[in-house]
């Protein structure tokens, strides 16, 4: 079994995001980067399948040199090899997926994992687009997987329920929180990762289809108001919710 896991290099969840001077990108100075949390579930699931059924897992990341840090973490968790698809320029989800799909055509994986979304721009598109470019079935928001006899059974999270689906390989699976509990990279894993190669390939060219015009922060939150205490305050609270906040 050949498994590919697409990983992205994203600002830490604790980052206080500042908009860059061009008004269209985020200011990256002083920002800590991490392996996208949803991709961690993807990495873990790929490793679990490899541990059970054997094979090879490759991690693929499209972007700058800095993405190597994220690839190293994936290697330290136990991934066999890593590929950096190099491109210094900003890409939209379409162009990212296109670049990755072009590489995967040559790698020919049986199973492709992505995280449900990348927590930087939250487009939730890459998995579906890769599947489309490769003409493969895709399963999004997967919270449970079972692989046997060339078929993959998955549970997907849908509003208020789980949907059970089945697909044939090759296919694309987008991992959702709950799929597993990602392992910590062990110190031995980190040492071994130093010896594993990161292959660098120029990413296939692709035009972005979506142009970012600008970014704006939401308006500052207004301070809360204490209307009163106890039962006596309820009518006033209801009035304010109806007339001022207009939420009921």
């Amino acid at each position: 079994m050949k498994i590919a896991v697409c990983v992205s290099h994203v600002p830490d969840t604790e980052t206080k995001v500042k908009i860059g001077s061009d008004g269209k990108t985020i200011d990256t100075s002083g920002v800590n980067y991490i392996l996208n949390p949803y991709d961690e579930f993807a990495v873990e699931e790929a490793l679990k399948i490899r541990e059970k059924d054997g094979g090879e897992v490759v991690a693929v990341s499209l972007g700058e040199d800095a993405n190597k840090e994220t690839l190293r973490k994936a290697l330290a968790m136990g991934i066999d090899k890593a590929v950096l698809l190099k491109d210094e320029h900003e890409r939209d989800s379409y162009a990212v997926a296109k670049g990755i799909a072009e590489y995967l055509k040559s790698y020919e994986p049986d199973l492709i994992f992505v995280g449900k979304q990348s927590i930087d721009y939250d487009n939730l598109q890459v998995g579906g687009l890769i599947a489309e470019f490769l003409g493969l079935p895709s399963v999004s928001v997967a919270v449970k997987l079972e692989y046997a006899d060339g078929k993959l059974k998955a549970e997907r999270e849908i509003e208020g329920a789980h949907e059970h689906v089945e697909v044939t390989l090759p296919c694309v699976v987008a991992a959702q929180r709950g799929l597993n509990e990602p392992r910590y990279p062990s110190l031995k894993g980190i040492m071994q990762a130093k010896k594993k190669p990161i292959e660098e390939i120029e990413a296939a060219q692709a035009e972005s289809r979506v142009k970012v015009l600008g970014m704006k922060k939401p308006p500052e939150k207004q301070p809360g108001k204490i209307v009163g205490e106890g039962v006596d305050a309820v009518p006033e609270l209801v009035r304010l919710l109806r007339e001022e906040a207009k939420v009921i």
Binding site: E69, R72, K73, A76, Y184, L187, I190, M191, K194
Partner: peptide, 14 residues
Amino acid sequence: EDDEILVRNTVREF
């Protein structure tokens, strides 16, 4: 080094 930082961050998370 990068791997020293990764070690530290891993233990921090643990």
